[in-house]
Amino acid sequence: MSRIRLRYVDHFTDRHGTVRYYFRRPGGKRTPLPGLPGSEAFMAAYAAAMGAPENKPAKQRGEQGTFDRLVALYYESAEFKTLKAPTQRAYRLAIERLLMLEKMGPRPVRGFNRTIIKGIMAKRVATPSAANDALKKLRILMKFALDLGWRDTDPTLRISKFKEGEHHTWTDEEIERFEAHWPIGSVQRTAFALLLFTGQRVSDVAAMSWKDVSLDGQRIRVTQEKTGTKLDLALHDDLLHVLADWPKWEHAILQTSWKRPFSVKGLGNKMADAIGAAGLPDECVTHGLRKAAARRLAEAGCTAHEIASITGHRSLAEVERYTRAAGQRILNDAATLKLASRRLPNQTQETP
């Protein structure tokens, strides 16, 4: 009698002497098969088991206690999943790049120390922002390792950040130079006006839509991608002038030549090219327009709270950082006028 050989089928003899057949893929669960191999019931159950999706255990990243396993667990944590989607993408990209460049993946988390961290930062001393971002991500991972009980101490404590430069705040002369090069009606000028007169980030300007503009055309609603802050902004007269004859497309205000909304990166690249074509210095970058908007508001006498109501900043300290370039000459003139209106003690009597 020929013996039927079926894949993933095995058998055992139970305590009553009966041969029991079962189906099991490697690493999977046993599925009992009724009757004898070749019988109708047996073959039907076997066919169903073969057709069922394989429930292979998910392969875990890295060995227990390594950075590979730590970051895999971090990506599944509430701390990571509650971040905004753009922040999640940025954090994941930065962490993966750090692990790749420093070959940290298979290293044990418990063996990580201050000397290693300082070495990582020293490699990036020429780019302080990169060094500080690496330190920030390491602090996040070390805190998470503490929460998991993988470490007893945080080696990032008391390691100071490098001093960073700041984005250049556009001057009025640079603004005029851009406007002189790009006429009203060009996508470059329209994007420029939206950035400057709303004080928003590139990501928020790329998402602006005509449906967010009020019925009277005087206001626009913005939900900031980075923070989720909701703003209701009055449109400046100069911006209204630029938008007056701009096409009222169904979706985004700014669209590519293929009539599709710009991606954040696409709009950023478009503006970088436009700035270069206008002959402006390298220090003039798109984010500097947001700072220029805050500077102009400060020079107009707006309070920090008033500026924050437009830029969406949650921290007044951050607003003050943005407005450091508020025209020193204008503020000095205001201070001098205040002093001039007050009679000094040595001026109360005429000199004989």
Rank of each mutant, 00 (worst) to 15 (best):
E225Y: 01
E164N: 11
V213L: 07
R295H: 14
L141K: 04
R321A: 12
F80D: 04
E320A: 09
G105Y: 08
T156L: 10
A308M: 10
A335H: 14
L98Y: 09
R296P: 02
R189I: 00
P281T: 01
T351Y: 03
Y91E: 05
T18S: 00
A206Y: 07
H241Y: 04
L135A: 04
R296Y: 07
T127W: 08
A48R: 10
S263W: 00
F192D: 04
G301R: 11
P32W: 14
A334M: 06
A130Q: 11
L146F: 09
I117V: 12
K259F: 00
G288W: 09
E102Y: 13
N332T: 01
K230D: 13
K338P: 02
L135S: 03
A206W: 08
G228T: 13
R329S: 03
T336I: 15
G38T: 12
D133C: 06
Q328D: 00
R139A: 10
A52L: 08
T190A: 05
K270T: 02
T351R: 10
A244W: 06
F144V: 03
E54Y: 12
R329Q: 01
P352F: 14
A326L: 05
R92M: 10
T311V: 14
R5A: 09
R324Q: 11
L280C: 02
M100K: 15
G111H: 14
R221Q: 12
G279E: 04
L280E: 01
C302N: 10
D282R: 10
R25F: 11
D68R: 05
G228M: 12
A252S: 15
V71G: 00
V125H: 13
A234Q: 10
I116T: 14
H167K: 08
G199K: 12
T13D: 00
T31K: 12
R201Y: 08
K211Y: 00
S209L: 05
G312C: 09
R324W: 04
V213N: 04
R290H: 12
G276F: 06
I220E: 02
L157C: 07
D273M: 05
M271N: 01
L148H: 07
A180Q: 04
E350I: 15
G301L: 15
T115Y: 11
L215W: 08
E174I: 10
T169C: 13
I175G: 05
R324D: 04
S2M: 07
F80P: 03
F262Q: 01
T256W: 03
T351E: 12
A191R: 01
A90S: 11
R92C: 03
G28M: 08
T13M: 01
K226L: 10
W246E: 07
D238L: 05
E250N: 12
M142S: 12
T127R: 13
A145Y: 07
A58M: 07
E40V: 09
Q328Y: 02
M104N: 07
Y21I: 01
R342C: 13
T169I: 11
W249H: 14
A234T: 11
T223V: 13
L6G: 04
L339V: 14
